[in-house]
């Protein structure tokens, strides 16, 4: 695909995708972290991004949330160009990073109120949302405590609450299950489906927990060496991989399988001049 690839409409509803990513590239000096990625995240679906370590998933997610500037390519969220209409694009986006760093000196209540303020919500709406989310994530009795006294899992629940507070149309999640207990796992999985089905929210999640992806994702892309190597529903990926009866783990392993030569070529391409200069130095 190239920059001119038109957004694909969702076959079932005819709706334009909420997120349209074209030719997304990120390089760090000679290293290409993400290499011309095209993505269409449909409205009202859970869209999974899978891939081995260092494949470029987190970089992609961070570019889509505006945490990192892309080197090339475009990202459009709900029709807003992330580079040009940054604030409008971010208004409809919530983000949950893999590590829940928040302001330790605020209380949970103050943190949520602060997030509501950043999104320009009315105070009445902020109050209603805080009320719902504190109950949903079982944080009500902790709401007046300093966040620094929270456990990792509690912080993660708080970050979930913060991301959902402004009722975003797009929720981007990097590793949703890190630090959550089994009850938290269940809560989040149920929540994803209800957000998508009842509120038509789009969820873009990257994860290594294939069981979660299998259970909640409507569509999946697999990234390796900075490029998309497969995309589709689980059924389509099964067909593509030849693992017709396999679970997602088997499908994933088959798709990302590569010979040593293939791997060397991909690495050489990705590390570009840096690798060449190392080889020259070595010789």
């Amino acid at each position: 695909m190239n920059d001119e690839t038109p957004p694909q409409t969702d076959g079932s509803t005819g709706e334009a995708p909420l997120v349209v990513v074209r030719g997304l590239t990120k390089t760090y000096d000679d290293f290409t972290a993400v290499d011309h990625i095209d993505l269409d995240v449909p409205t009202g679906q859970v869209f999974g991004v899978l891939g081995p370590n260092g494949a470029g998933k987190t970089t992609t997610m961070r570019m889509i949330t505006g945490l990192i500037e892309p080197t090339a390519g475009s990202i459009s969220i709900d029709g807003f160009d992330l580079q040009k209409d940054t604030v409008d694009a971010k208004k409809v986006t919530g983000f949950i990073p893999d590590r829940p760093y928040v302001y330790d000196k605020l209380t949970a209540f103050e943190y949520l109120r602060f997030i509501g303020g950043l999104y320009g919500m009315t105070e009445k709406r902020i109050a209603a949302r805080i009320d719902e989310l504190l109950t949903l994530f079982e944080l009500r009795e902790w709401s007046n405590g300093l966040i620094e006294s929270f456990s990792h899992g509690m912080k993660q629940r708080l970050v979930f609450s913060g991301a959902l507070l402004p009722e975003p149309r797009l929720l981007v999640i990097d590793e949703p299950m890190v630090g959550l207990d089994p009850k938290g796992h269940h809560l989040v999985k149920t929540l994803f489906r209800s957000l998508v089905e009842e509120q038509r929210m789009s969820i873009l999640l990257s994860t290594h927990t294939l069981e979660v992806a299998e259970e909640v994702c409507d569509q999946i892309v697999i990234i390796n060496h900075g490029r998309i190597i497969a995309r589709g529903t689980l059924g389509q990926l099964r067909l593509e991989s030849g693992e017709n009866d396999g679970n997602l783990e088997q499908v994933f392993l088959r798709i990302t399988e590569e010979t040593e030569d293939e791997r060397d070529q991909a690495v050489a391409r990705r590390f570009g001049n840096a690798r060449r200069s190392v080889e020259e130095e070595a010789s």
Binding site: T65, G66, L67, T86, V87, D88, K90, K91, T93, F95, P97, Y101, V102, Y103, I115, L118, Y119, G120, G162
Partner: peptide
């Protein structure tokens, strides 16, 4: 990251 991700320049 909270500031970077939030809808504020």
């Amino acid at each position: 990251w909270i500031i970077l991700q939030a809808p504020i320049s």
